[in-house]
Design a protein around this nucleic acid. Structure first.
Lengths: 340, 340
DNA sequence: CTGTTAGCGCATTCAT
DNA sequence: ATGAATGCGCTAACAG
């Protein structure tokens, strides 16, 4: 702890306010009626002595840590940042405080991080993405209030907060189709790489369904796998070009890969959107500043984070959280052209 | 805390291992020699009972929280993310855990956040950027080990970790000069807006000095103020264009504004780098994926974060941290062309 | 090297 | 409504 602390304890203020320690505790926690006079005296003493309750003593005595554990998979990725910001906002006036841990998409690290959070005796847990299997998550949920963001778990629907990825991808692909594109490539991500790959899988399914509904058979040669990072978008386009199948549009499973794709096209002298149109997913902050600005399926990360925070607070208070549904909304920008 | 906890305490494992609680504590903390046999028995009991020390009891009894408070100014900005990642890495095997708080560039919020971290009895504090004045920081430093990242405070050099912004900006500007540019615009940021504005101020100074050293007098008409966000880069270029002064290159005080500038130029049909060259600062992750890839002064955010973590650990252990110096390195990419 | 004894600062019974 | 007493789980002297 800090070196020369305010070694002021509840006893000091009890003495100064001429009441018993329990009374002080009562007014501080508002846990029982206290005579107005005594309350004021206590409050004044607290103020004058600049008293700061010892949070550890509080937690030890009360059994509550007033913290929420947040387990993410990579700090600093555009999408996760939005979630974290939302959580911060959602917790704002709640007395609860978030504690973050990063699983770095590595199962072992993820497990350790979870353990660390549990060791910290968090009152609730928000797990964003990740690779824990459902059984493991169920065990966790049995012991601690839990919200899982960004995954759709069949057996625990009342713990999950996610976006309809299928619908978002369908919409994005349909937009390209409506703009006259027929040969639409897709950059997906390899299973087991990153993110609740469910997301990416559903996006691919939405893409394929949109094609079928338009009477087109998906062409496996037009689908390439990346790993969700920018660089893999570059490689994906190289791969696509190497295959020699023509295409007039690319739908990338996330904006980061779309960014990489954009660069690869630039390097090849392929113009966007004149020669090839480009659509992403997530609406990451810089999507609007890409050149040209990127059309993308809008994933409302911040609202999702807020909802997660609210939900976990509800659970902690024994209420049943109402989990809103999130739909992706296509944000149309200049990276798509109409095909003759 | 989690609902049905392992209510296993140190007493349980003491009993099971046939030793006293203090011995258990000793082996767990490695705070004194314990007979190998007893140690093994303890360890085994810990394992079998799946014992988890109560961190609050530990903190209360020991007076240490084993946490490091990290006060940033905006979660989710490319530069700060790098710092946070670095801190995470630097703390990795240390038993210390970071607790984050966000000041959102609002002095009141910043102050509250600091109070919250102090209430949490952090053992050390890393303040990234921010607007606290030096006197306030000195008071904090007197009570708690403190490292300030990204600010250069004259009176507390042994607490600061920062980049030589002057040098970085000088280098960036000189590069443009070497490439034949003579009319070089600069996008800076308004004082009092964001960030330890010192940074931005020093960058401007470096820009001006480079011009002077090349025999050019800085033209105030070629300097515009933004607020470090992308959008302000757009507006800055609009402003520049409206002023009617010609320029062949822009040096933006950070990459985010460079990104906005890029978009504004695109909208005006001004080509980069053919018509106007562009240089940024920070080397944020997507700078390499801009079209064209952005030349930028490389600010090693992750290493700085790591250094901060190491330094604060050193201070906590009563050692004098060695604070490395960081220099900006220009990363040359395709956003700059040679001027005839 | 090890067990015993006191707290750490607060919340929460239980009396009154 | 309020004070006294007890314990949360662990660490740190203190003795041996």
């Amino acid at each position: 702890m800090s070196n020369r602390e305010n070694k002021i304890t509840i006893l000091d203020i009890a003495e100064k306010a001429q009441v018993s320690p329990s009374t002080v505790s009562r007014v501080l926690r508002n846990s029982a009626g206290v005579a107005a006079k005594k309350r004021d005296a206590v409050l004044q003493a607290v103020d004058e002595l600049n008293y700061r309750p010892n949070i550890f003593a509080q937690s030890l005595a009360s059994g509550q840590s007033m913290t929420i554990g947040v387990l993410t998979q990579n700090f600093g990725s555009p999408f996760y940042d939005g979630i974290l910001q939302g959580i911060l906002q959602g917790l704002e006036h709640s007395n609860y405080w978030p504690i973050f841990a990063d699983g770095r998409w590595q199962p072992t690290v993820e497990e350790q991080s979870l353990t660390l959070l549990l060791d910290r005796r968090v009152d609730g847990l928000i797990i964003v993405g990740g690779q824990f299997d459902e059984a493991a998550l169920q065990k966790v949920a049995a012991e601690t209030p839990l919200i899982v963001v960004g995954r759709e778990l069949p057996t625990m629907p009342d713990h999950c907060l996610y976006l309809d990825n299928f619908q978002g991808a369908y919409q994005a692909t349909k937009y390209l189709l409506d703009m006259g594109h027929r040969r639409i490539a897709h950059i997906t991500a390899a299973v087991g790489y990153q993110k609740s790959v469910d997301d990416v899988f559903r996006r691919r399914a939405g893409y394929e369904q949109a094609l079928r509904d338009a009477g087109l058979e998906p062409d496996p040669q037009l689908v390439v796998e990346g790993d969700l990072q920018q660089q893999s978008g570059v490689l994906a386009v190289e791969m696509l070009l190497a295959r020699g199948r023509s295409f007039s549009a690319i739908f990338a499973a996330n904006d980061q890969m779309a960014l990489g794709a954009r660069l690869a096209l630039y390097r090849r002298g392929i113009r966007v959107p004149d020669d090839v149109s480009l659509v992403g997913f997530d609406n990451m902050p810089s999507a609007a500043y890409m050149v040209p600005p990127l059309t993308t399926a809008h994933q409302p990360a911040v609202p999702m984070g807020e909802a997660a925070a609210r939900a976990i607070l509800a659970m902690i208070n024994g209420r049943i959280p109402d989990l809103p549904r999130f739909e992706a909304e296509l944000v149309i920008r200049e990276s798509v052209s109409r095909q003759r």
